[in-house]
Amino acid sequence: MEMPRIDVAYIAELAKLELSAEERARYTRDLEQVLAYVTQLEKWDTQGVSPMCHPLEVYDALRDDIPGQSLSNEAALSNAPQQTDGQFRVPKVVESAH
């Protein structure tokens, strides 16, 4: 595969990270180096090989649907940055009009 020019600013936006100009330059350099190295994956013959998603055989893991004990509302909210009336509270979010 040809080494594409990496648009780190765009990737960071997808990942919801804000980068300074210095960070953009650094991460671009690091990623280009890593991606140049991983192009070696191309040299192995993977004809007819299935992608391996999981190291062991996966089985049907659904259990019976029996109500059980789960975290209390209080415990679930115990690490919330902000809460109100037993719910997570977030700052106001406004979609700007286009």
């Binding site: 595969m1 594409p4 990496i6 780190v8 990737i11 960071a12 997808l14 990942a15 990270l17 980068l19 960070e23 991460y27 690091d30 990623l31 890593v34 991606l35 991983v38 994956l41 191309e42 192995w44 993977t46 090989v49 299935s50 992608p51 391996m52 998603c53």
Partner: peptide, 30 residues
């Protein structure tokens, strides 16, 4: 952590998924 999130986001992003991620999973099988 940011470096790895960016690398991971890149290899899963449109147009690169098969070239990197699927390819890596096949080599993992090997």
């Amino acid at each position: 952590v940011k470096r790895r999130i960016i690398l991971g986001t890149y290899v899963l992003s449109g147009g690169y998924y098969d070239a990197y991620y699927t390819r890596a999973q096949k080599v993992r099988a090997l």
